[in-house]
Design a protein around this nucleic acid. Sequence first.
RNA 1: GGCUGAGUGGCAGAGUGGUUAUGCAGCGGCCUGCAAAGCCGUGUACAUCGGUUCGAUUCCGUUCUCAGCCUCCA
Length: 462
Amino acid sequence: MLNIYNTLTRTKAPLEPIIPHQVRLYVCGMTVYDHCHLGHARVMVVFDVVVRYLRYLGYEVIYVRNITDVDDKIIQRAKENSEDIHALTQRFIDAMHEDEDALAVLRPDIEPRATQSMADIITMIQTLLDNGLAYMGDNGDVYYQVEKFAAYGALSGKKTAELLAGSRVDIETAKKNPLDFVLWKAAKPEEPHWPSPWGNGRPGWHIECSAMSTRCLGSHFDIHGGGMDLQFPHHENEIAQSEGATGHQFVNVWMHNGFVRINEEKMSKSLNNFFTVREILNHYSGETIRCFILTSHYRSPLHYSEHNLNTAQGAVNRLYTALRGLDTSDCPADLGQNFIAKFTQAMNDDFNSAEALAVLFELAHDINRYKTTNTAVACQLGGLLRQLAGVLGLLQADADRYLQGTDNNSIRDATIENLIQARQNARVQKQWAESDRIRDELKAQGIVLEDGANGTTWRREL
RNA sequence: GGCUGAGUGGCAGAGUGGUUAUGCAGCGGCCUGCAAAGCCGUGUACAUCGGUUCGAUUCCGUUCUCAGCCUCCA
């Protein structure tokens, strides 16, 4: 039984899909005005694993992750770049897809965009106006009247009185109450806008998610996810909008992942202490980054450091090393039921990927032992390792190919093979000095040799 | 100030009311021409002070420290 921690109830509870065997999942995606950083990567990988595991359990999953392609920052960035807004957003959407592919993140089933959802957005705002939950300010903006929604604050554990006392809320005179948030912004000169019953304008940030999730998944669905910082106000406002419009529950389970930290601080754009995915990909494989993300539980902080990335790199290498030389095409039969049970138990406990990874290492350990004593068993366990790792989106490459890297480095594969052959000739004649010289020469170029029972294998150094 | 969450062995990071996490690093050994990889062995970690209990790192409370949200943010 899969248990998931629900932010709404602050407890873990068994997943009970609204429609049996089907899970409808919505995740708040990127605002596309810049490259993805590691924090975005964490959201992508975490919910990719959620989807993969739900499918592994046999659920039919409808996975929706939106793209926010109109907002203040996008407009500002386009202005700075003297770039067409559509060109800018398309550029970063393409980049995002590249990053996802590098991290082996499967595409969501539906990737709706705010700019392509205006009809749904306008309809929902009109409903909120009709229901008396929204009003138009004297500046032409349409606002949600928070005090009209009694359950406001339920998700984030905030009380409206305390929010006001915090007094960090922007004072906008057109609002009846500082907590009110904008649903529709009246157009300013030279800004993108769409026609609406309230004049030309564009949607506020929160309404798009309510409108798009409802269009794609219906007005009541199973899981809504995103980063912890979206809990308030974004998700709180989504609930107010959606439930205010429909009068019934919006989402059953709210999932929020923890932050990436660097030097004990949140990695974020505003602190300017972030690393983009593509920067990190210059030094580490996508699989290493993915493994690094999964080494900590999704709700815990993830501490970015070169040292921790190096450790993840070593971990992936160890797993691939166990698979190396094994024909894993045979599906695992009865072997390894205990590993499957432990893996499933870990994942059933709120997607505990750290513990699931530990099971993978135990499996690799067994494989290494059987390699010398019982190849058939080792192969079957290898197949199982590949299968379970696949649920985490890991170990899907050919082991040798991963360990040897691509043939675009300073030294060509053919050169390596030639030197290995030369060294082998020297070894046959017990010319150890020459043999070691060749090995050192390769080592200096990042190539590590390993003499095994079946000859010499090589890999690129970490 | 209000509200969350967290403090685990050298590092990272799970978990548990009484028994091995796991990975990396270290130490000893096996294997190897020597290595590498792998294997075998090896570590009285659970912030603090109290309480509950036969027994707590695990439950409750105190203190301290850290992070996050309350403003755009994944």
